[in-house]
Design a protein around this nucleic acid. Structure first.
Lengths: 227, 227
DNA sequence: GAATGTGAAGGTTTTCACAGCA
DNA sequence: TGCTGTGAAAACCTTCACATTC
């Protein structure tokens, strides 16, 4: 990464891109997909911003971290910008994802089309329940969680979605890390300890309801809607 | 709210509490619940911070917006602080929640115990599918979405969880708003337009995977794990 | 004329550092 | 001595405003 060959878009070496910028890239990608379907060839930062409740300056600044994709006086080319963002986000390819824990949330995510649409393909399922092991979920046979390490490696899994009970999440995450997985999306409401070189994101759905609850109770005027 | 009687905790009038602070309160609440179970009577900002990968100063600053809950030299009383945070977040009570859209994600959330544990009780279900209407999900009979407005009002629903396809989300959100609901948690990957006085949060699970994808592809060194 | 790209300004959030209290 | 509560400083992020380009 430090000796990247710079083609059209900028190298990220040394630069620190904020989490918010990255999250907004996802929003731009979504908006551009729609604009493309609607037949637009170009789009201004103004229109793109309005589509996602942001400001034009924000859109331009975010994109400018990665390159100069627009044309002054005209705007951004919809199809090209969409491709550029896909490359930046790394979703111009298919990711092999394993899901661990076939409970309520886990089963739902196996059939969640939005993941597949963005290139996240769930190709492996694990559970510790004997009744579930061997069963077929959307064409995938559930594996025994005891074979986690070997099967994750054998199958070239790159990311894991963790939907196990909070009580066992840390134990399982340790196994996942030992297996060499570098990226984990955790749905268990618990703070997992992982080494510094592991990318861990937490999806905490109760937190969102708690925010709403806080807002109602405190008559909280929000500046912005959550991304 | 402007003429609040101030007892022990501070009034929030005029103050703007950041979204991050509110989200961290959820984390503190979770950590305190655990500490309580483990038998701790007091906890220092240092320990609380370590439990949720934050800094002690951050913990103290966050709490200081709402009052002085600690004792110098000693720390915070676990049980009391937990209660105080519950009051601040408005989860010292039960919220009546309706869920609209009994698809993959929707059905999973009906059985999602973490919601109930924090006081968010799903008491009403809606769908537009004739095969689902009238069926029983975890003791709740699915209502016809055409009766949304009247039934939301009749049942004193205060929040709605939206798990419908992106294509119909805006139409349904308009109905929900018309029915007088002020808080919506949206799972559809679309930017919904709502009046200023409606609290809207978006849960975008693909966005989290896209962040992981970005991090891997760009060797992005993250300062912090996402809340 | 229209809209980008970007330094500089402005605003917000986090961290520091220390006075004050148990 | 230990740890909170908090102004001040530092870091970070967003918005402004304008030179630049098509």
């Amino acid at each position: 990464m430090s000796t990247d060959i710079d083609t059209s878009s900028k190298s990220l070496s040394g630069k620190r891109i904020s989490e918010s910028t990255i999250n907004r890239l996802s929003l731009y990608y979504r908006a551009l997909s729609l604009l493309e379907k609607e037949g637009y060839e170009t789009v201004s930062s103004k229109v793109l911003a309005r589509r996602e409740k942001l400001t034009p300056a924000q859109v331009r600044k975010d994109l400018s971290f990665f390159g100069s994709f627009g044309t002054r006086g005209l705007g951004y080319p919809v199809a090209d910008l969409k491709k550029e963002i896909a490359v930046i986000l790394g979703i111009d390819r298919v990711w092999r994802v394993a899901l661990v824990g076939i409970g309520n949330i886990g089963s739902a995510l196996v059939s969640y089309k939005e993941f597949a649409r963005q290139g996240f393909q769930i190709v492996k399922l694990f559970d510790n329940d004997q009744r579930k092991i061997g069963s077929n979920h959307k064409g995938i046979i559930v594996s025994d969680i005891n074979n986690l390490a070997t099967e994750l490696a054998e199958d070239n899994i790159e990311m894991v979605v963790l939907t196990v009970p909070a009580t066992v999440a840390q134990y399982i995450v340790d196994e996942i890390v030992k297996a060499g997985i570098k990226a984990i999306l955790n749905f268990a409401p618990v703070n997992l300890k992982v080494p510094d070189d592991i990318y861990l994101r937490n999806e905490n759905m109760s937190m969102e309801l708690e925010y709403l609850s806080f807002a109602i109770v405190n008559n909280h005027t929000q500046k912005k809607v959550k991304l």
